[in-house]
């Protein structure tokens, strides 16, 4: 049985349709990412799952129970917002205790023990007496997570939890959050607009655009078998070119450069963009005005002695090409 089911959710704000017939399921213990450009309705969907917002149509089913009209406090989830929403007038420890105080079946010392255990879990025990403002962004983020899981919720909702951090910290926290999630085995739904984040963290990804779901699949399938033009374009880089009547797509790193026949397309080098480990070759198909990116290891590009206006012969492996 699915842990959580989203059934035909539709939501309007005034005349604007923010969500249109959204369907998805989440299994127990799964890490699901909702990925999409900003403004596509991800946060609204998350808030509907949380019960902080009511849908116009559709149902939310948690563990087989219809929770559509249940208030948030009865749904038993933990939530982390992009802003973290840590209470600035409370210390790290107090922030976590604030929720625990609602647990009438725990004694004061048990609560404290639980809170400290949570802080150990996110490696913040020596900062417990500090106020949020005195913490770095990453530490604030981890405090928010500790607070969200302190009440032992049955699932976790994360709304762009990493987007306010700088790139280094973000990469580190990605794996930390994932490790914590595995350790606790907690079902998690994370909203993000960062495709790399979704690809590296998720078990499955729900790709959204303009209020609708474009594709639901594993990161591997999303990358290699994008179901729509939007998904192909939004996730990773994709070259589009027309072959007769059909539009075809190929990822830059899948293109092969060959010396002679048989080749599929000829392309003219325009520019070389050094990106460290690999180099991106910008090229155009003569007479067609179509741009093609080709990613090759930088060493290889070096040895090929490419220049502007060099003519390339490109092979496009059929198994990697997509067609619409």
């Amino acid at each position: 049985m699915n842990f959580l089911e989203i059934k035909g959710i539709t939501k309007h704000f005034g005349s604007q349709t923010v969500l249109k017939d959204i369907n998805a399921t989440i299994e127990k213990g799964e890490f699901l990412c909702i990925l999409g450009p900003s403004g596509c309705g991800k946060t609204t969907l998350l808030r509907i799952i949380a019960g902080l917002e009511t849908a116009d149509c559709g149902q939310i089913i948690i563990e087989g129970r219809d929770c559509t009209f249940l208030p948030p406090s009865k749904r038993n989830f933990g939530i982390v917002f992009q802003s973290y929403a840590l209470f600035p007038n409370m210390t790290v420890l107090e922030n976590i205790l604030f929720g625990l105080k609602q647990k009438k079946d725990m004694s004061a010392s048990e609560r404290k023990k639980k809170a400290i255990e949570m802080l150990n879990l996110v490696d913040l025990s020596e900062h417990s007496a500090k106020y949020p403002r005195q913490l770095s962004g990453g530490q604030q983020q981890r405090t928010a997570i500790a607070r969200a899981i302190a009440l032992s919720p049955s699932f976790l909702l994360l709304d762009e939890p990493l987007s306010a951090l700088d790139a280094k910290v973000r990469a580190k926290l990605r794996s930390e959050i994932r490790m914590l999630q595995r350790k606790l085995g907690i079902t998690t739904i994370m909203v993000t607009h960062d495709q790399e984040e979704a690809l590296t963290m998720a078990d499955r990804i729900v790709v959204m655009n303009n209020a609708v779901v474009e594709q639901i699949a594993s990161p591997y399938a999303i990358y290699n078998k994008p179901a729509s033009h939007f998904v192909a374009d939004f996730i990773g880089a994709m070259n589009f070119y027309s072959e007769g009547e059909v539009l075809r797509g190929i990822r830059p790193e899948k293109i092969k450069i060959v010396d002679r026949e048989p080749y599929d397309i000829k392309a003219l080098v325009r520019e070389l963009e050094f990106k460290g480990a690999y180099t991106r070759i910008h090229s155009t198909i003569p007479g067609k005005n179509t741009e093609m990116f080709i990613d090759l290891p930088s060493d290889k590009v070096e040895s090929m002695e490419l220049h502007r206006e060099t003519m390339l012969f490109l092979q496009i492996p059929d198994e990697h090409a997509i067609r619409y």
Partner: peptide, 27 residues
């Protein structure tokens, strides 16, 4: 005040009046 304070508190099952007294008023 971040309106998400109320939401987080609600998710933590804290009654509204308590959030009001412990968060909105001191802030």
């Amino acid at each position: 005040l971040d309106y998400e304070f109320e939401m987080v508190a609600e998710a933590m099952k804290i009654p509204r009046w308590k959030t009001f007294l412990r968060v909105s008023v001191p802030l």
